[in-house]
Computed example of a mutant assay.
Amino acid sequence: MTAARLRDGKLVALLLVVALAVVVLFAQLAPTRSAFSAKVTNSSNSAGTAAYFTCASAVDADDAGATFRYRLGEATGAKTAADSSVAASNGTYQGSMVAATPSPIACPRDTGSAYVLNGSTSFVSTPTSVRNPTTFSEEVWFRTTVAGGMLIGFGSNQVAVSGQHDRQVYINTAGQLVFGAYSSTTQVVTSPSSVTDGAWHHVVATMSAATGMRLYLDGALVASNAAYTAPENYTGYWRVGYDTVSGWPGQPNNFFFTGSMRFAAVYTTVLTPAQVANHSAAGR
């Protein structure tokens, strides 16, 4: 073998080694199709798991203190609003009962439709009278574009217009949420913003001697009065969707609620801010 051929052979071998090294390097550095990458642009960003996956599981967690829990997911024409709580206090759909599945729907991971109230005959009555509830929480998901109507409240009559009525959550003429109680004088707390935007909203109103009045909207406390701690003393019925709000601040012309509802409940306890936030988050 000549010296020239030997040099050429060594050169080819060297080039092959270099080429192989380059291929290995690129194989290690190049991304694959199955790779996943993420970028955090704000060090304050955070993520977590919701306490409850569905609205049903969220309200079920507080069953021990429930007077009733109506999911309002029955089919059109239903007469009974089934109570999912241990109280087994089924309600009655009064007037027109229509069910629909609007898009979007509150609590989209829950089965069932939404209850559509027509603003003239639709509401839910409860079967059993209650003596002077002083510690309670009221809750409902709702959607409307109409200012006016009672969402949930307490009255002295089961189905007709109540002579005594308070502990009411209603929408005033400005489209704001109002929570009102009465004991010698009328006292209300009001949401700063309107809720008649056609979006789903979650409301909780609570009252007790220890905490006074609190109004939560979409999981956040929006109004309160710690000094007003005692509602009117009488025996009455909880009602959903209708009763008189005559004489109350911002009194609407129509006392019937117009819109859609899901998951109405009353508890004999004051829901904590964390419980309220969990219930709201479960429906998003």
Rank of each mutant, 00 (worst) to 15 (best):
A160F: 07
L25T: 13
R33G: 05
A264W: 10
A64F: 00
L14K: 08
L11E: 03
A114H: 05
A56C: 00
S120Q: 13
P231Q: 06
S280I: 00
D8N: 05
A82W: 10
R5K: 07
P133G: 09
P252G: 08
T272G: 11
T196R: 06
A114V: 04
T54P: 03
Y267F: 15
A264K: 10
C55Y: 00
A114P: 05
N253M: 02
V203G: 08
A47R: 08
P252M: 05
T258N: 15
L177D: 08
G119I: 07
L15Y: 08
T76W: 07
T229Y: 10
A56F: 07
S122H: 06
T173W: 02
T101S: 14
F263E: 08
Q164P: 00
V159G: 00
M97L: 01
Q275G: 04
T186G: 15
Y234L: 12
T206G: 03
E232V: 07
K39R: 14
S224Y: 03
D166L: 04
T134D: 07
G149V: 09
Y267N: 12
E139H: 09
N253K: 04
F154D: 02
A106K: 00
S122K: 06
T126I: 15
Y52C: 00
T134Q: 12
F263Y: 12
M1R: 12
A38R: 09
L117R: 09
G236C: 13
R7S: 15
T269F: 00
R109V: 08
N254L: 05
V140Q: 13
G112M: 02
C107V: 11
T211G: 08
A274I: 03
S84D: 07
A181Y: 10
G73C: 02
S57T: 03
Q176A: 07
Y93N: 13
P127Q: 10
G77C: 05
Q164E: 14
A100P: 02
G9E: 13
V276I: 14
A114D: 08
Y267D: 13
P102G: 10
G95Y: 03
L215F: 15
Q94L: 12
Q94P: 03
S156L: 10
D62Y: 07
A50V: 05
A205I: 11
S260W: 15
A277Y: 01
G259M: 02
P252K: 05
V178W: 03
N132K: 04
N278H: 03
A38W: 14
K10D: 06
T190I: 15
A4L: 10
A209C: 00
I152C: 04
D8I: 06
T135I: 10
Q275W: 08
F36W: 13
S280Y: 13
R239D: 11
V169K: 09
E139L: 09
R167T: 01
I152E: 06
P31Q: 10
D60F: 04
